[in-house]
Design a protein around this nucleic acid. Sequence first.
DNA 1: CTGCTTGTAGTCAAGTTTGACTAGCGAGGG
DNA 2: CCCTCGCTAGTCAAACTTGACTACAAGCAG
Lengths: 213, 213
Amino acid sequence: MSVIRLLVLGAVRQHGRAHGYQVRNDLEYWGAHEWSNAKPGSIYHALKQMAKQGLLHAHEVAPSTAGGPPRTEYEITEQGTEEYFRLVREALTAYDQKPDVLSAGLGCMVDLDRAEVLDLLERRVRSIGEWRRAVTEYYTPEDGPGQLGHIGEIMNFWVHSADTGAEWTRALIERIRGGAYTFRGEGEPFVGVLAEGEENPYATGERHPGDSR
Amino acid sequence: MSVIRLLVLGAVRQHGRAHGYQVRNDLEYWGAHEWSNAKPGSIYHALKQMAKQGLLHAHEVAPSTAGGPPRTEYEITEQGTEEYFRLVREALTAYDQKPDVLSAGLGCMVDLDRAEVLDLLERRVRSIGEWRRAVTEYYTPEDGPGQLGHIGEIMNFWVHSADTGAEWTRALIERIRGGAYTFRGEGEPFVGVLAEGEENPYATGERHPGDSR
DNA sequence: CTGCTTGTAGTCAAGTTTGACTAGCGAGGG
DNA sequence: CCCTCGCTAGTCAAACTTGACTACAAGCAG
């Protein structure tokens, strides 16, 4: 499960056709540089790699309109779209303690039907429950939990995270069931990418890592 | 902040002298393969890299006593010990939304004084608070939070994680203040590594990734 | 005593991530 | 007019991670 791939596919897909810098800006707009490893190097690498694997189609394109080196534009292929949906579904369902995966899934969930998202999130809650049961059974010695010493705090922390994660997911399910947000097939979708030249209202003000000095 | 480095340094340090497979087993004992990227490749790589950097001293040692290729034993150097403490402190203090970092910090916290750990955890709570303030101010548009659409759920999720994380940390502080666990200088330390040949009671039963088939 | 499985110990190539670096263009100051 | 700054757009080497693979020894089934 690569978060970067999911995010990049999602960004390219919403644009129809996008170059690397656009993707990079979208991810910043989503705040992805804060909660995932969405750095320029990773983004450009993911684009190239997925183009090589046929998930994206690369158009070698004109020298950029606004200075800088020539840029390549990408379009998502049918295969890429399939992979995209597979990744979104997985991100919403699987509990792997990686918060970035869920975050990315949340950003992309409106590309699915409301009903399916609800189903996936229900699954998520169940899978958290199963995980919790497995862990607590496994790491609870017969002679009481004291055996583990401070190492037990690690287990305690996991379990706490799982519980609060499940609780949050249930609340999200209620919000979505209650009609929040606009999902696939429900009319005008929420615009989650920046148009060409549009400025990012959530720009961090931090310098781009690519900038020298 | 490399979790692997922290874990590996911690394991080698507790043993005094350890070879790769021992470290690998300790990390499994701690459950680290579940909540971090502690795979054999990463572990051996970290050992070699840190040896190259002078954090560990490598003894090219006899062919293994129990089959398999000859093994190298490692000892932590003074520089490595410094780095170890730096990493533990950082892991306990910094809030970077990476649960594996905190987990590793918890596993190693007893190598510090009780008072210092309490101080570090208090800082952690404060730093979560600051982070929360920054995020909520930043990502709350003037015209109400509805602006963000479903993207707002990502922020919501972060903030929820931060809040429950702070709550858990406060509870941990209380447990430690209340006398739980044995910290540095408080007598017989909890044995957190497996002796040579000791079996791991928490072995996953899953096959080692290194095993063929 | 042959072949098969299990356990010990580690290597390797391929893929990914990181952080620093390059390079073109326009705006604005001096 | 020249020079620097900041923005656009991307590259690159070095480090790290992954998952599959190697190799040796002991146990044991037939």
